[in-house]
């Protein structure tokens, strides 16, 4: 699971009012280089919950993202490179995503979050 996915995921357990952001529990992080794709970054930026991304990246061991960001920063190649790395090159390989309201853990194994709910959660 990469962090742009984390920025989209939300706990959808019945009764949970705000299931975002899921807290990340890290057992293993893997880094994989991918092609730089500024269109994607510029397109994603307005939709990102920035604080959630910064916190998630920090949890994954990456601390280069600025605490605050605005769209003017998209002009900066350096910023885009950092954003690229945070969103696309960090993988939560093993760990869990934790519902902020209920504490329910969604396991992440081999990079795959299992977001299926139990019968009593829907």
């Amino acid at each position: 699971m990469r962090l742009f996915t984390h920025n989209m995921l939300s706990s959808n357990i019945k009764g949970v009012a705000n299931g975002f952001p899921l807290r990340i529990e890290v057992d293993q992080v893997v880094e994989k280089q991918v092609d730089f794709h500024p269109d994607f970054l510029r397109n994603m930026f307005p939709k990102l919950e920035w604080k959630a991304l910064v916190d998630a990246a920090r949890t994954m061991g990456y601390t280069e993202l600025p605490e605050e960001a605005d769209s003017s920063m998209l002009e900066s190649e350096e910023f885009l490179r950092k954003l690229h790395h945070a969103l696309l090159e960090l993988h939560l390989e093993e760990g869990a995503l934790v519902c902020p309201e209920t504490g329910r853990k969604f396991p992440v194994n081999k990079g795959i979050p299992n977001m299926l709910l139990h019968e009593d959660e829907v």
């Binding site: 699971m1 990469r2 996915t5 920025n7 989209m8 995921l9 939300s10 706990s11 959808n12 299931g19 975002f20 939709k47 969604f106 081999k110 990079g111 795959i112 979050p113 299992n114 977001m115 299926l116 709910l117 829907v122």
Partner: peptide, 22 residues
């Protein structure tokens, strides 16, 4: 996942996504 795609296990009738992200 083995093919390198970004994927998760989820139910199509109850997507664990926040609104308007895609």
């Amino acid at each position: 996942a083995d093919r390198g795609h970004e994927v998760l296990v989820a139910d199509a009738v109850n997507l664990p996504y926040r609104t308007g992200f895609g």
